[in-house]
Simulated assay, not measured.
Amino acid sequence: MAATAGKVKFCTDLEKSVLVENFTKRGWVRVDQEDGWNFYWSSVHSTRNIFSLETGYRLADDQVINHFPNHYELTRKDLMVKNIKRYRKDLEKDGNSLAERDETGRYVYLAQGVGIFLVNKLSQIKKWSRDGRGIPAHVPGKDAYIIQRYLEDPLLIGGKKFDLRLYVLVTSYRPLKAYMYRLGFCRFCTVKYNSSTSELENMFVHLTNVSIQKHAEKYNDSHGGKWSIHNLKMYLEGTRGKEANDKLWDDIHWLIVHSLKAVQPVMASDRHCFECYGYDIMIDTALKPWLIEVNASPSLTSTTAADRVMKYSLISDILNIVIPGRDIPDVRWNKIPAKKALGNFDVLYDEELERLAHLSDTADGRDGKSRAAAAGRSQTGKDGKKQLTIWK
Rank of each mutant, 00 (worst) to 15 (best):
354 E>L: 13
58 R>Q: 10
7 K>C: 03
135 I>D: 01
155 L>W: 09
320 N>P: 04
281 I>K: 10
209 N>V: 10
97 S>I: 14
194 N>A: 05
96 N>P: 02
284 D>F: 04
194 N>Q: 06
348 L>Q: 03
231 N>K: 15
124 Q>I: 00
262 A>R: 10
86 R>P: 02
128 W>T: 00
328 I>M: 03
139 V>E: 05
311 K>G: 10
167 Y>V: 00
155 L>D: 06
239 T>H: 15
184 G>K: 01
25 K>N: 14
27 G>N: 01
7 K>L: 10
360 S>T: 05
354 E>A: 13
306 A>E: 06
320 N>L: 00
113 G>P: 08
326 R>Y: 04
45 H>C: 05
166 L>M: 15
230 H>Y: 14
199 E>S: 10
70 N>I: 09
23 F>G: 04
87 Y>V: 00
172 S>R: 13
209 N>F: 03
239 T>Y: 06
151 L>K: 08
122 L>I: 08
124 Q>W: 10
342 L>Y: 11
330 D>R: 15
123 S>Q: 14
285 T>N: 04
64 V>E: 03
51 F>Q: 03
276 C>D: 00
210 V>K: 08
317 D>M: 00
73 E>I: 01
303 T>R: 04
56 G>I: 05
180 M>N: 06
196 S>W: 05
50 I>T: 11
203 M>Y: 03
20 V>L: 15
138 H>F: 13
354 E>D: 15
362 T>V: 02
324 P>L: 02
115 G>P: 09
291 L>P: 01
322 V>Q: 10
48 R>C: 06
